[in-house]
């Protein structure tokens, strides 16, 4: 009888939900695998770049179905940290069946959450993503060095700000063709850091470390980094 009940429950659940929907983030620099402290990457402007830190908030994930339905991730914000491989996999539970056409998400933390004061988990101020001198989250952090730059080799990009006119919170939509059935699903999202250096030169822009026009413009590039491997 006990086994029978378990079978019934399992059958019921599997009929309605995919048990697991996984988004795996693959960081790239153009076509190369992106890694910290190892490789040197050459930008389109022939700058040779190495990286020591990449951390950012990805959140407000919504899966949009072809029939107009949508599914919202229960976890509001995920802190992605290249030093911490387990943050590169986003698990969405109890995702309904159907055909997903687009994924909407944000890069950074919205203004309401910024105004909320102290928060837990990935939003804990001790995670290194909260400005000590001017309350607010750092949405995106990228640090490294330009090997062939003549002087000022280091670059530090701390992109944040939630108060007008310097909001740097970005929302984007990527196309995907994914059927969700009763089986586990894993999709790969490409995050191409090379996009940051298409127009931007490390030799010209060394530091962005506070909310400003530069910071806002920088944040507008960030959505271009993301795409789904179809």
């Amino acid at each position: 009888m006990k086994y029978f009940l378990i079978i019934i429950v399992t059958f019921f659940l599997s009929d309605c939900f995919a048990s697991n929907f996984r988004i795996k983030l693959s960081h790239k620099f153009s076509d190369e695998v992106f890694a910290l402290n190892e490789k040197t990457y050459t930008s389109v402007n022939n700058e040779e770049l190495t990286f020591s830190r990449l951390k950012y908030y990805l959140g407000n994930i919504v899966l949009n179905y072809d029939n107009g339905d949508s599914y919202t991730d229960l976890v509001r914000y995920h802190l992605i940290d290249l030093d911490n491989p387990e943050t590169m996999i986003l698990e969405l539970n109890n995702v309904p069946e159907g055909n997903i056409k687009t994924i909407k998400f944000s890069i950074g933390v919205d203004s309401l959450t910024n105004s909320n004061g102290l928060m837990e988990g990935d939003l804990d101020p001790l995670k290194g993503m909260y400005w000590a001198w001017s309350s607010g989250f750092i949405n995106f952090k990228l640090e490294g060095s330009c090997v062939n730059c003549e002087s000022n080799k280091e670059f530090t990009y701390h992109i944040g700000g939630f108060i007008a006119p310097y909001q740097s919170f970005q929302t984007t939509l990527v196309a995907v063709e994914q059927e969700v059935s009763d089986k586990d699903v894993a999709i790969e999202m490409i995050v191409n850091i090379g996009e940051v250096f298409l127009e931007n030169k490390a030799s010209l822009l060394h530091k962005v470390m506070s909310p400003s026009k530069t910071s806002k413009c920088f944040s507008e590039i960030l959505p271009q980094m993301f795409s789904i491997k179809l």
Partner: peptide, 25 residues
């Protein structure tokens, strides 16, 4: 007035190079 919530105020002296210069981790 850069800090807008009492709860996050101690982060400033804790992490300031000139004060406690503490690494959060």
């Amino acid at each position: 007035g850069g800090i807008t919530n009492l709860d996050v105020q101690p982060l400033a002296p804790l992490t300031s190079f000139f004060e406690m210069d503490m690494d959060p981790d």
